[in-house]
Design a protein around this nucleic acid. Structure first.
Length: 538
RNA sequence: GGGGCGGUAGGCGAAUGGUAGAGCCGCCGGCCUUUCAAGCCGGAGUCUGUGGGUUCAAGUCCCAUCCGCCCUGCCA
């Protein structure tokens, strides 16, 4: 039974406007959608009896996992997990020409990386083609669909003709007027045909889950959890094709069949499907199946307010892994695009997301993808854990990039010194790499400012490092403060000179702790190298 | 062309029809400091795309308009 029902006592008894009624109803719907079936005290088993919520994510393997799709997957995942339901993964490879196994594998890899673990086996839609075909035949037998012998070329010509006249295109239903005998004869003769489903006409459609205002001219009215009542009039619908001329099923048929087979209760998808839903509802109705609850979430846009494109940075989820982002941070960020925590919290781990998630806090406006905020959140996630965990993450990351990082124990010590510098693993690596990679060059400006013409100072610094009794960060700092004062220098000048010599840059983790970690031998070696550079430059 | 959906500071977003801009990112300034982050403190940015209407009261409901996105495929 659908969760959202219209059988509750009327609560807007004629005092409000129709609009008010509608609004309230929408609000109620949203609430029911996320509040679960589970245990409503006092309400007995009538329609609200235990029903497991089942959501699904159905990517088509015609490309890698797009961040927008990842967010759709996330919402399905979070809703199912929050409600103790199931989250299914189905690869929609119905279009054999466009689908590629490599993409399916990449999408699966991306899902795993994100930690969006699904229940049960992955369904490959193409394997259900037989069922889809049988369903089309059943539709044909029932008279809910008909064979169409029009060629693609003639259809295209009609489309162009209508468009050039500025008129809306609809299939002219030539083949719908064919009588059965002729249709059968032509089919038997081997003529190619597609199967079209007859759009509802004339009468009002059977009431969906919640009674809505009747649609005068037929058409389809349905309830969306987020958008409320969506109506498409009869003239705005068409007799859609569900089976191609080669006998292969098409998307709208395939999703409906597979969702029914899987017992999907909630269809959470991008709002680009808002207008596709009626086409699918027609099939549900012809099949006598009850509708799932529809939840159309807004799309993600690029900074130009257009559909997120490649130049916005990565649209492929796996590219974020390469750029040094953490899956939890990506999930956190994606969740915040369209959903907000009831208490306004923003830095949330996967489990916190599951605990706090509800559909009634999902908005309806498209959101712009903001890489800066993703980076901020990633910084929070990556620095949130202990240095040891970060060390493992970083080691894996570097290894994958073909670098050879130090042991995680050593890395961990370096990261402790590094503190919270760097938002991504890539940036963190840039901060700490000097520990195990000697600077080959020096930042030009820094070299000029802090080393050039300071041979004597460098020489003195070297001597002190060599003579230092205790090669430890804090005592070194105290020593060099005193050293600066004695030499009539600013501590900053000395510190920066050392920094440039040891790291090659003017920005780095605290330099004395770094030197301590580097050790006396390495520190002296680097000063020697700097002296050499100083000498050759002259 | 037809239809659907959306529009609150630069971005994400709060706000039972009741003082709008909570909170976060970013930006600017300050503190801290050996550099840079982090952290803490403060600040700018504005009146909900626009115009009507309903109401004692509208970001919220209605109409129109503009803009954006989507559908209008033998793609999904």
């Amino acid at each position: 039974m659908p969760l959202a029902r219209g059988d509750r006592p009327a609560r807007c008894d004629g005092t409000g406007t129709e609009a008010n009624r509608r609004r309230r109803r929408n609000r109620d719907l949203r609430r029911d959608g996320h509040r679960s079936h589970r245990g409503r005290r006092g309400r007995r088993a009538d329609d609200e009896k235990i029903m497991t919520i089942i959501t699904r994510f159905p990517p088509s393997p015609t490309g890698t996992l797009h961040v927008g799709s990842a967010r759709t997957a996330l919402f399905n995942f979070l809703f199912a997990r929050a409600q103790g339901g199931k989250f299914l993964l189905r690869i929609e490879d119905t279009d054999r020409e466009r689908s590629r196994a490599e993409y399916a594998d990449q999408i699966i890899a991306a899902m795993k990386w994100l930690g969006l673990d699904w229940d049960g086996e992955i369904v490959y839609q193409s394997r259900n083609a037989g069922i889809h075909r049988q369903t089309a035949e059943r539709l044909l037998e029932q008279g809910a669909a008909y064979r169409c012998f029009c060629t693609e070329e003639s259809l295209e010509a009609k489309r162009v003709a209508m468009r050039t006249q500025g008129k809306p295109y609809r299939y002219d239903r030539t083949c719908r007027r064919l009588d059965h005998a002729e249709s059968d004869r032509r089919a038997a003769a081997g003529e190619r045909f597609v199967v079209r489903v007859i759009k509802p006409a004339g009468s009002a459609p059977p009431a969906p889950q919640v009674p809505a205002s009747p649609t005068p001219a037929g058409g389809i009215t349905y309830q969306d959890l987020l958008h409320g009542t969506i109506t498409l009039r009869e003239e705005d619908l068409d007799d859609i094709i569900v089976m191609k001329g080669d006998g292969r099923p098409l998307y709208h048929l395939a999703v409906v069949c597979d969702d029914i087979a899987a017992g999907v209760t909630h269809v959470i998808r991008g709002d680009d499907h808002l207008d596709n839903t009626p086409k699918q509802i027609v099939i549900y109705q012809a099949l006598g199946e009850k509708l799932p609850t529809y939840v159309h979430i807004p799309l993600i846009l690029g900074s130009d307010r257009k559909r997120l494109s490649k130049r916005e940075g990565a649209e492929n989820v796996l590219e974020y892994r390469e750029a040094g982002f953490l899956p939890d941070a990506v999930l956190n960020f994606l969740a915040l695009l369209g959903w907000s925590h009831p208490e306004g919290r923003e830095i949330l781990g996967r489990d916190e997301l599951i605990r706090a998630f509800s559909l009634d806090r999902v908005g309806t406006a498209a959101a712009v993808f903001d890489l800066t905020k993703l980076r901020f959140l990633n910084g929070k996630h990556v620095h949130g854990g202990p240095p040891e965990a970060r060390a493992r993450l970083l080691a894996d990351y570097l290894t994958r990039r073909g670098e050879t990082p130090p042991s995680t124990a050593d890395l961990s010590a370096m990261l402790k010194v590094n503190g919270e510098r760097g938002d991504t693993l890539a940036e963190i690596a840039d901060y700490v790499r000097f520990f195990w990679v000697r600077p080959k060059t020096y930042d030009e400006q820094a070299f000029k400012k802090f080393l050039e013409g300071r041979k004597d100072l460098v020489e003195k610094i070297r001597r002190e490092f060599e003579a230092l009794a205790d090669f430890e960060g804090e005592s070194m700092e105290i020593f060099f403060r005193d050293f600066s004062e004695r030499g009539g220098l600013k501590f900053k000048e000395v510190g920066q000179a050392i920094r440039v010599m040891l790291t090659g840059k003017s920005v780095s983790p605290p330099i004395f702790q770094s030197a301590a970690l580097l050790g006396r031998t390495e520190t002296l070696l680097r000063i020697d190298a700097a002296q050499e550079a100083l000498a050759t430059q002259k």
